[in-house]
Write a protein that binds this DNA or RNA. Structure first.
Lengths: 332, 332
DNA sequence: ATTACCGATAGAACGGTTTCAACTCAGCTG
DNA sequence: CAGCTGAGTTGAAACCGTTCTATCGGTAAT
């Protein structure tokens, strides 16, 4: 900056005024400064800036698993909103850290990031999340902490789950099973609740439908399917409600390798509507979450929060059922 | 830090020594400082640190498209290597920026990041990439710039392509077509070269095999397939070599909707071996790139570069053919 | 007594932003 | 025409929170 000032024959503060447009500068001098910046190929040191400004223009994005396309899409939405206001997005992965939330809190306190977008997916203790939020602005995506009003962007999982379950029931299925997500996770609870509403609505006792919990990863879908195959033949469900697509895929694979046909022997629905789900055979019936939009809105909310505005506690977007080929009437 | 020093009744420099373990401190005082840090819940300001140290402990990862699982896996590898040494990874997306490389160069010059991992995937001018590399350490992934020896981590695309093409030829196919990537991209060139080597090896004139170039995205695979379907019946290929899985998927979809069966009417191979490829029907024969490992090694190389060590210009990993169900002998 | 070293500290950077006093130069007044 | 005023500019200096060099008192070794 000093070099620029000398080259343009002005004072350092004048250069600063030009850079930030924060003070009066005569047009002729402004041009001289701009020229000098170009000639010297100068970019202001951002560390110095953030030191003085007490803001890093950076946010952290917590993502459990990037290869999960749902998470990837949310991240793209966040990235889009951030780059529009010249904020960087750093990627942090809970994996391999012993106490992740504590780690993010430190990021916040040390001003490495100005805020956090928290995409859980792997149930951590609500308390630790809340503790982290005390160190700085945090917005949750697809997660809510009961009792606390941390800002969050979610989609109407419950309704989506109810509708897709209703679709299955409408096709005539009466012996069902649920492959659920981690019970600690809000989304898992919501989806299960939605399924149960549909059961009740169809005159079924919700408690009579067996639930096998996985962890949202593909393998756990297979494991759940294995347990289901151990049920006595006459209790074996004709349709499986899976709390996400990945587990649905795992379940389909397992059923296939054990000689069952999908959907003829067992109908299956998922949740998330990953891009790949429409490419499977059979094309998977699922519930679409507006992932990119959720990410975008979460980032916007975080920026508001960072500016001190207060934001509504929960921003809820609609989920829409995508009916495809993986559900057919039973006994075909 | 001043507060900590006062609370522990020592000087500021002593606190710094404790924090960085960079000077002699009597055990008793060290403990007093550690206590004070805990009591005050203090984390050192990273902006100040990087200002003084002239390093941001942050690298940029350029990713064209996160929903592409190959890119996502590379990113995971980078992230893993980075978090092991407490370096943050910021995600930058070329999209929406007018002159991306110039933008990254600015990031480098302003010390917002200490280095860049560049995952192209969408052919930009070699010159601009080279210009960017003049502003700071850059490591390319799956890309090379002829003539310049920018450090890069690649996999042996050429050999992988040759082998998978040979597999197709071994099954008896003689009328083939290639769906290639963007000709400006190194990977696209390598894969094409590999295919042609295989053709020549099987006694075919490489120039007799038609090439339709896409841009590595799924839609472009469909478009290429559409052109192929317009060929006269007797010139229509019995097997398609696709330069990546996404385009293979697009091609399969298009062929299907136009009444052709895969693999019975047209055999297909891809490249990348995305996790989803093994889930398709038919399971896609492809070439696996060690994506996570490539990312990991790229990050390692970048760290070496940042420390001033010099690294080998090209780190080449093997690609391995995954034979599955999407290739059968022609005319079945 | 000189040297060597250890533990501790003061204070100068690092590269910006921002405040503030001072300066320039019209325009106006008596 | 000297003197005053005030708008428009400017440069010096303080500050942001660290790191790190130079220094210093004191004790042990030579």
């Amino acid at each position: 900056m000093k070099d620029v000032a000398e080259h343009a024959n002005v004072s350092i503060s004048t250069v600063s005024y030009v850079l930030n447009d924060s003070g009066p500068v005569a047009p002729e001098r402004r041009n001289r400064v701009l020229d000098a910046i170009r000639v010297l190929n100068y970019s202001p040191n951002e560390s110095a800036r953030s030191l003085k400004r007490r803001s890093a223009s950076t946010i952290a994005m917590v993502v459990p698993d990037l290869t999960n396309q749902f998470f990837a899409m949310v991240t793209e939405g966040v990235q889009k909103a951030a780059s529009a206001v010249n904020v960087l997005v750093v990627l942090v992965v809970p994996d391999a850290i012993e106490t992740p939330e504590e780690h993010y809190a430190k990021l916040l306190r040390s001003q490495r990031v100005d805020g956090v977008i928290y995409l859980s997916g792997t149930g951590s203790m609500p308390e630790t999340i809340y503790e982290m939020a005390r160190s700085g602005p945090v917005v949750l995506v697809d997660e809510q902490i009961p009792g606390r009003d941390l800002p969050s962007v979610v989609c109407d999982s419950r309704r989506g789950a109810r509708e897709v379950a209703t679709h299955v029931l409408d096709q005539g299925h009466r012996r069902l099973a649920v492959i659920g997500g981690p019970p600690a996770l809000w989304t898992a609870q919501q989806r299960l609740a939605g399924y149960r509403e549909a059961f009740a609505g169809a005159g079924l006792d919700p408690d009579s439908v067996p639930v096998f919990n996985g962890d949202y990863r593909q393998e756990s879908g297979g494991e759940a399917a294995a347990k289901i195959l151990q049920l006595p033949e006459d209790e074996r469900p004709t349709a499986l409600l899976c709390a996400n697509d990945l587990m649905a895929i795992g379940a389909i694979e397992h059923l296939r390798t054990n000689g069952l046909r999908v959907p003829e022997d067992v109908s299956i629905v998922g949740f998330d509507d990953l891009p790949i789900s429409a490419l499977l055979t059979p094309r998977l019936t699922s519930v679409r979450q507006p992932a990119r939009d959720m990410g975008y809105r979460a980032a916007k909310a975080l920026f508001d929060l960072m500016e001190g505005k207060d934001v509504e506690a929960a921003d809820q977007l609609p989920a829409v059922v995508q009916i495809r080929d993986s559900v057919v009437p039973p006994g075909r």
